[in-house]
Design a protein around this nucleic acid. Structure first.
Lengths: 202, 202
DNA sequence: AGTTGACATGTCAGAAGTTACATAGTGAGG
DNA sequence: CCTCACTATGTAACTTCTGACATGTCAACT
């Protein structure tokens, strides 16, 4: 109830996805389809959503008065809708942003490491070697993107897309962390003996 | 169907939570209550579940023949059940472990960073300063745990609880990454100007 | 002329996860 | 004696997320 029917109580309501969409819309109006594309990168490195989740959520945001939409004739059987954040939506986003989040991260690859001793060591070592390789590739990709952004002045907190740069930098840090860890773990499993951290060989 | 009715097909079925519980049970038989405690640390840093999710999942694992249970008279209105992995359960776990995971991580704090420019800079800077402090505390805690484990020989891949150590090391890497990133971001937001990575002051 | 891929919007069933409700014994401390 | 915390197991309602189903246009390539 609170906050979802146009009242201006300070109560924060709405799902995390709703705020993610509002964040995307602060970069300019967009259609549901465009938002679906935009949750791929760099946001997609830390938050994803399918279109089947996005369209209903946009309807909810619209009902709450947090976004406006204009319809144009588009391809396909239905009208194309372009959404934009309303002042109420922006206020709601600003209120949500400064609340410290509590959600714990979930990582399936780390969960698998927890049971590493139950599996075939060679197969598990291969799994973490692949992960290390993948993180190397991703890291190179992210660093290139970061350099491009810096050249465009996007590393300035005053730049309207500074958030993209901030998320990308978290991606860089994460991949560095994953790389070091995966390499160490693969080394442990391959040799079958304790390996000091930082001494993992390729 | 496949894999859930006692057939020994190579097909992997079951939820991630099911495999997480099997992983815990490879460390020895446990009750649902004990499993609820054990998903707190170190596994809880990367995977969590409430008892309301664990009890039904144990019932499903039992129906699939992946775990066995023995009942003892316990406190409270119901019998206490102690679960143990069956050979079929262990085989299922081993098959699942070597499949490369695909799930993307989710991080609410990174999502908030994406919209950082929409919020009050001072409030956002405080949020990331707090995060940096929290990661410092966690890191110290994790490093202590890691030292204790190393002293107990748990850093040896042959040790039955090597997985605990591996997960903890991911925790260490993650907190280091979060710390560096949060400090940098807070610095950016506080000064309002681009800050080179690695040059963020406290 | 036919196929593929991008554009574009939606629904539905089910899985996964959270919060709250419900019950009951035991031991420690006030 | 009372309360609190821990042990212990379950259910119910609800939210969130995924995967599949459903429709239709337009441009490029074969």
């Amino acid at each position: 109830m609170a906050g979802i029917e146009g009242d201006d109580s300070a109560t924060v309501s709405g799902s995390t996805l709703g705020y993610a969409l509002l964040s995307l819309l602060t970069r300019g109006p967009a259609t549901g389809y465009q938002l679906t594309q935009q949750v791929k990168a760099p946001l997609g490195h830390f938050w994803t959503a399918r279109h089947s989740q996005i369209y209903p959520e946009l309807a909810r945001l619209s009902a709450a008065g947090w976004v406006d939409s204009v319809e144009q004739a588009g391809p396909g059987p239905r009208a194309k809708k372009t959404y934009a954040v309303t002042p109420a939506g922006l206020a709601a986003l600003r209120a949500w942003l400064v609340i410290p989040p509590t959600a714990q991260p979930r990582s399936e690859i780390t969960l698998k490491a927890y049971a590493a001793t139950s599996a075939d060591p060679a197969a598990m070592a291969a799994l973490y070697t692949d992960l290390a390789d993948r993180s190397t590739r991703l890291l190179a990709e992210y660093e290139q993107d970061a350099a491009r952004m810096r050249a465009a002045g996007q590393d300035d907190p005053a730049h309207p897309r500074f958030g993209n740069y901030a998320v990308l930098m978290m991606g860089v840090e994460s991949q560095r962390a994953v790389h070091r860890w995966a390499r160490w773990l693969a080394s442990c499993l391959r040799t079958g003996r304790p390996v000091a951290y930082g001494e993992a060989a390729d």
